[in-house]
Design a protein around this nucleic acid. Structure first.
Lengths: 253, 253
DNA sequence: CATTGTGAAGGAGTTCACAGCA
DNA sequence: TGCTGTGAACTCCTTCACAATG
């Protein structure tokens, strides 16, 4: 779901599957918790439970990184933390800019987990001149006019867009032009970017809509189960196409 | 990625693939924009471009809903908006509660796109007694003590968790016990829930870590490309196992 | 002998390419 | 003629089940 376009066939890269990459942060979090409790080793079964995945999947995921476990014993927690951190590129420091310091942008700036793992909020940028200079989460907000300079001066390659939908594409283009190659988009828009730029999106309303779909389905199944229990099987199983009996031919607004 | 566990084999349900469900909101958004510009019909090619997917995929997705297009012409915008809305369950109203009114919770409460499509913030809940009664986004915050009553009085089935990680699992359990069956989790924790409850998670730091992985890979490829360009092919292609030459045998903190 | 690491089977999602239809 | 709808091929991911092994 991440980028859509894969980067390139990659000259015999040790291709870690995208699905695996997406789970590594989950494992890392679980491992970090174990590490803080000074647990020395952990089995695939235990770790899988903590991360909310199945153990075969976890073992296969780890097998892409190398053979870091010990048969009969499990995995060394500290060592795995290090290996996964390195694989994810968290042993280096990633300066990040957040563009759009509204409610959400401010919340992101204040988010603690940010700094914890290799990420550092290098700058906050907003288009509102009234915001300029005002500190948010201890960092002074800078004006959009200086975006390019800020990116370059700080060597930023990861940008977070938390602007209104209307501004997102333009901000995105400026970020990319200034050298950003990874974007985390909170604006409800599809961003188009050149090849080689990664975009991930976080979209509240999409998530809610997906939940609503399942919620509705549950209600439907409940009703169905009830009907079946009552053995009142009178469902006319044969509508031309659309799986659905009473739909207006034209929509009612 | 949503729930992990599928709901049940479903008595001959018209199984819309999960991947398709996850794209329907995207199509809906693009269609809504077209609708607002009074565009009457749209081809799979155009709509796919607007939604950022490929047209074959879009056509296959729509084929799961039914045959709503016209060959040689395209899709009727208004009709599709209605069909997708209905499929997603957006023709009804979904009361939602947000638990945890910190920076993020407040940002979510203020988020406009919320109300736009079938969702209504029925209540805001926080554990801090000092917050009680204080209005956020025009809605008075209520105390966690009343959580169960609030859920039941409002017939809430979708809950949003925006608490700190430590509180999330407990809040989740109370929500579920009170009747919530869909949860959108912003806390950086794995929630465990009984069967039949859907959880979707939104996790900033996971997204950033995934971006960092790709970012690091880009840097590596760049270096590789450079090396190749200089034709200095002196890569010793044979390290026992771990795809990596200089790793400390034990991690350095 | 408990637990990893992994071939092989199975399933889900994507893309191709073209038949079918307005 | 132009565009949809879809079987079939393909790629990616997950799960099974067991041989390998510290």
């Amino acid at each position: 779901m991440a980028t859509g376009r894969t980067h390139r066939p990659a000259t015999r890269s040790r291709g870690i599957p995208e699905a695996t990459v997406a789970r590594l942060p989950l494992y890392l979090r679980a491992l970090t918790a174990l590490s803080e409790r000074s647990v020395p080793t952990v089995s695939s079964e235990e770790l899988a439970a903590a991360a909310g995945v199945n153990s075969a999947k976890l073992r296969k995921d780890f097998s892409y990184l190398g053979s870091y476990g010990t048969r009969g014993v499990g995995y060394d927690v500290e060592y795995l933390v290090y290996q996964i951190s390195r694989e994810l590129g968290l042993t280096q420091d990633w300066p990040v800019v957040i563009v759009g310091i509204g409610n959400l942008g401010a919340a992101l700036a204040n988010y603690g987990g940010f700094a914890s793992r290799g990420f550092r909020v290098a700058a906050l940028i907003d288009a509102d001149p009234a915001m300029a200079g005002k500190p948010v989460a201890g960092i002074p907000v800078q004006h959009t006019d200086d975006l390019e300079k800020i990116i370059k001066d700080n060597g930023v390659s990861i940008g977070v867009i938390a602007t209104p939908a209307g501004a997102a594409q333009q901000v995105c283009e400026r970020l990319v032009a200034a050298g950003v190659t990874s974007i985390l988009n909170f604006a409800p828009t599809v961003l188009s970017v050149p090849d080689g730029v990664d975009v991930r999106k976080v979209d509240l309303s999409i998530e809610l809509q997906i939940l609503a779909f399942h919620e509705q389905r549950k209600a439907g199944e409940e009703a169905l189960a009830l009907a079946e229990a009552e053995a009142v099987v009178e469902v006319s199983e044969e509508s031309g196409k659309g799986p659905d009996g009473d739909v207006p031919a034209v929509m009612p607004a």
